[in-house]
Amino acid sequence: MPRPDLLGRLRASGVRLLDALAARIARGLVLVLLTCITWSMAEGGTTRLKVATRIVPPMVIEKNGTLSGFSIELWNSIGGRLNCETEYVVMPDVGELLDAVEHGRADLAIAAISITSDRENRFDFSQPIMNSGLQILVRGTAANVEPNPLRELMQLFFSRTLLVWLGIALLLILIPAHLIFLVERHHRNGIIPSTKYFPGIFHAMFWAAGTLATQADQMPRHWVARIVAVLWMFTGVVFVAFYTAQLTASLTVQQIKGPINGPRDLVGKPVGTTRGSTAAVYLNEAKAQVLEFEKVDDLFNALLNQEIDAVVFDAPVLHYYETHDGRGLAKIVGAVFHKEDYGIVFPTGSPLRKHVNEALLALRENDTYQRIYEEWFGKR
C-alpha cells in the first residue's frame, strides 16, 4: 500500500499536469481563433467586427441614428476590402473608447484618435489616416458678447504699449530737466527756485513733463535754457503724435485680434476641451484653467455662452465647426500647433492591424482615400 506522502506527491503532480494541459488548450484556442479571423479575411470569408467610435464632426457625425463622416466612410471602405461586417459602438469620449478596445468590448476603434507615445505603450496603431494638430477657437464678431468698458479701460492702462511709452517719456523728461536745472538754478530770475538738487530737480522735471505733454507754462530765463525749451517743445509735439498713433494702432489691432491669439495667451485663461483628450494634457502643462466637457457640442456651447474664453481641440474639427454650425459665431486664431497624427486603434498584437494597413495603402493607391478626404475637407 502506497505511503501517504507518496500519494500527496502523485496528486500534486497530477494537478500540475492538468494545469499545464489547460493552459496549452487555452493558448491553442486563442491561436485557432486568431488564425480563423486572419484566414477568413485572406480567403474572402465574412467576419463581424465591433468598431468603437465617438461623435466628433466631421470625423464622425450622427444624424437620425445613422453614422457618417470621414472616419466612418474610410472604415467602410477598409471593411469592404476586408469583406467584414461592422457593428459600430458609440462611446461618449476618447477615454471610454480606448477602454473598450483595451478590455475587449471592441475589436478596434476609429474616430479622431491621436497617436501618442503613451497610447503606443497600451495599444497598436495603424498607419496614420490623417495629419492633425491642435488649434484655438474663440468667439466671433457675430457672437452675442456684451462689451465691458471698465475692463477695456483697465486693459488699456496696464497694456504693454502704455508702459513702454511711459518709460520712454520718463527718460525724455529726465534729460532736459537736468539741463534746465543746471543753467537756471543760478539765474536771478530763473524758473528753478532752489539751487539744491532736491527739491530743485523736481521743479525742473515738472516743467519738462508739462512741456512734453502740452506747452510750457513759463519760459526759462537763461539763453541756453531757452534754446533747450524750444527744442523740447518741438520734441513734445513729435512725441505726442507718435504716441497717439501707436496707441490707436494697438487698440485697433487688439479689437481685431482679441486677447487670445496663440498658445502663449492661454496661460491663466479659462479654456475648454474634451475629457481625456491630448488637448487636455497640453492645456494642463500650459497652466491654463482647463474645463473638460464630455461632448464636443457642449464644448462649443460653453464658448458661445461665455463660460470659457477659448476652445483648444483638433484642427480639422474646429475648421469644420467654423465653416458650418459656428459660421460667424466663432473663429480660429493662430496656426496649428502640437502636431499629431490620427490612427486606428487595435489591442496589442491584433492580427487585424496588418490587414487594415494593407487595405489602407490600397485605398491611397487607387485614390479612394483622396476622394473621401476631399468630400469632407476639400482639396488640399
Rank of each mutant, 00 (worst) to 15 (best):
P2R: 12
L7T: 15
G14Q: 15
V15I: 15
L18R: 09
G28C: 03
W39H: 09
G45H: 08
T47Q: 12
R48H: 14
T53Y: 03
R54A: 06
V60G: 04
V60M: 04
K63S: 14
G65D: 11
T66M: 10
F70G: 13
I78G: 03
G80P: 10
V89F: 12
V89E: 07
V90G: 12
V94Y: 07
L97S: 11
L98K: 05
R105I: 06
I113N: 04
I115C: 05
D118N: 07
E120I: 10
D124W: 02
D124V: 04
P128M: 05
G133T: 02
L134F: 02
L134Q: 00
V145C: 02
E152I: 04
L153W: 09
Q155V: 01
T161K: 11
L163Q: 11
L171A: 13
L172W: 13
L174V: 12
L182E: 14
V183G: 01
V183D: 02
R188N: 07
I191N: 02
P193K: 08
T195W: 06
I201Q: 08
I201Y: 08
H203D: 10
M205E: 11
A208Q: 03
G210L: 09
T214H: 14
T214S: 12
Q215L: 08
A229V: 11
T235L: 14
V240Y: 05
F242Q: 15
T244I: 12
A249G: 02
T252S: 08
G262Q: 05
P263D: 03
K269I: 02
V271F: 00
S277W: 06
S277P: 04
V281I: 09
V281N: 06
Y282K: 03
E294T: 13
E294G: 03
K295E: 09
L304P: 00
N305M: 05
D309K: 10
V311D: 00
D314V: 05
D314M: 04
Y320C: 00
E322S: 07
H338S: 12
Y342C: 08
G349P: 03
R353I: 11
K354V: 09
E358Q: 14
E358N: 07
E358R: 13
A359R: 06
A359M: 04
Q370V: 09
Y373L: 15
E374R: 15
F377V: 11
R380I: 15
